[in-house]
Amino acid sequence: MVNTVEYSIETKGLVKSYPQPRNFFEFFRGTEKKPVTALDHVDLKIKKGEFFGVLGPNGAGKTTLTKILCTLVLPSEGEVRVNGYDVVKNGGGVRTSIGLVSSDERSFYWKISGRENLVFFAVLNNHSWSRAKERAAEVLEIVGLESAADRRFETYSSGMKQKMAFAKGLLNDPQTLFLDEPTRSLDPNAAKEIRHFLSSLSKQGKTIFLTTHNLAEAEQLCKRVAVLHRGRVQGVGSKRDLGRMLTRGERLMLVVSGLEKPGISRLETLSVVDSVGVEGLGGGRVRLTLELAEGSVSTVLSEALKLGLQIHSTRTEEASLEQIFEKLTTEEV
């Protein structure tokens, strides 16, 4: 039984395959085409109030996943619950509890004002006419667009349109907010403002589900991320968790002198060392980059001293999200 209290989003064995369109001749010949698998046994558990990111290259299945969670596409197999509602059996329940913010400017009526757009969508969110007007005013204030509210949507800048998308997504005060690349096509200042706004929303206890290509943004905002590749979840967790998946733990950077070839071999044979990278710096100095098991820095350092190495500097670092993303989306893990 799926826990409806702890998790805002839960998918179990989610599979989505799309039939491939057939051309005129294939249709009349009855030629069958193998369906394309967009999502392949996706299991996710996203806690209430979590800021969760989904990363993946184009065609990874991010949009399909978001659309299934928003009830716009039906899953082929598996169980999917959003805020406790089954997306297949109770799509209406799901939609009362979610908001979607996309970067698509076309999701508004351009010939009417921003306020009129919001009142219309608020009524579709089951608000009465008077409450819809109040709610539209509230969300306009939240996104800071009160002064431009009565201008036609077509006159807004890209940044204002994106703020309107947020305002629309917040109309029903959703428990879970889906964000589909919300800062795409925004200038750096506008994107920064949106990220600041997202942080404040997260602090209000809303669950936020972000799909993005912007790794820096995900790194800054998300507590956990899932990396999707070819419809499969290649990894889920915090940046540190994902980094550990790839390297067992830590990366140690040493600048040493007095290193001979047998010394490198000795370090490579240590059970706590996954790999050793060597880079000559000139003047007899060498930079060693060692991928280590977690908590084994002291072991390696004492071994280095035993080998007679002179250590000039030490530094540990975690793998960046960009490195993790590259690794997870270019090879099977």
Partner: peptide
């Protein structure tokens, strides 16, 4: 126009829309 998706994400049924 792209507005169909925006309406379908609300609790209002597609037949009503």
């Amino acid at each position: 126009m792209g507005t169909l998706e925006a309406m379908l994400i609300t609790p209002t049924r597609i037949s009503t829309i």
